[in-house]
Amino acid sequence: MEFTDPAKRKAQVAGLALMAAMFFLPAFAPRFYVYLAALILVRGLLATSLNLVLGYGGMYQFHHTVFYGVGAYAAALMITKTVLSPWLGFLAGPLVAAALSLVMGLICVRLSKLYFGMLQISLGSLVWAIVFRWYSFTGGDDGIHNIPLPAAISSINGSYYFTLVVSLLSLAAMYLIVNSAFGRVFQAVRDNQERCETIGVPVKRQQLMGLVLAGFFGGVSGVLFVAVEGTVFPDLMFWTLSLEVIIMCLLGGWFTFLGPMLGAAIIVILRTVVGIYTEYWTFFLGVILMLIIFFLPEGVLGYFLERLGRTRPTSAVSES
């Protein structure tokens, strides 16, 4: 790491200022904005967890929100159906999501690129279909509402701080993972699988580990959704949401660590702001997405990093 790089220094200062602002947000912002910020953190964490495998692993995880949904459902079911402490539910969510990710990963990981993505999306849709129909257990298409949350996080400020702390911890953990030896090898696998195999990297095990980690953090964002909204429904794991999360990664910049978080912020804010003026907000989202694809293929953050003169991270685009 070069701390002397002025662009990096500037970015660090801006990051610290933003973090401070987020900690004091409930003190000066109206409730609605606090709620919005919590939602951005939840979606941003989800997008960042997807980007672990999508951007850093080069794996087309088309149906990532299945882990978001399963994490949320696991927490909601633990809280509503058992007498155990709700906090255990919040712990169970990510673990169940990681376990599901392991099972799905074991089935999918022998394939690559589009074939991996299609098998993954069909397995994910299978999970969605079961949740959608299993009325007696998951509430079917109604979902589960009015989930009783622990007193500490039942207020909007409480759930906001809970979300903020958990997201920051998760982001830090993911940042460390990406920059660990494991993360470096993972990126090497993305850039050249054959070469990694030749030098003795267990490619499939590496990818499986990445999938489980991404599933785990997807589950974390799922339980945070429960903490913020107090409700779960099958749309949380419908494939359209998965594509929206991929868009967040792309929009922010999927070769940067914080790009997906920025993309999530843009989309959540866009939806809210455009949603105030017109019910046709997805039209605008579609148009903006097209403009991004045509003019900013590196994403918003990727574009600005490039403008700041930093060397562009190696992109997987040239590989395929």
Binding site: Y60, L114, I246, I247, F283, L289, M290
Partner: peptide, 30 residues
């Protein structure tokens, strides 16, 4: 639109068609 993107990566093309879905969906609603 589309014929300008053929050289791009699959993921980009897929997302472009998803963007079309969003636009078409709202056009139908409109």
């Amino acid at each position: 639109l589309f014929c300008r993107l053929y050289e791009r990566e699959h993921l980009m093309l897929l997302l472009f068609t998803f963007a079309l879905t969003l636009v078409f969906g709202d056009m139908v609603k409109f």
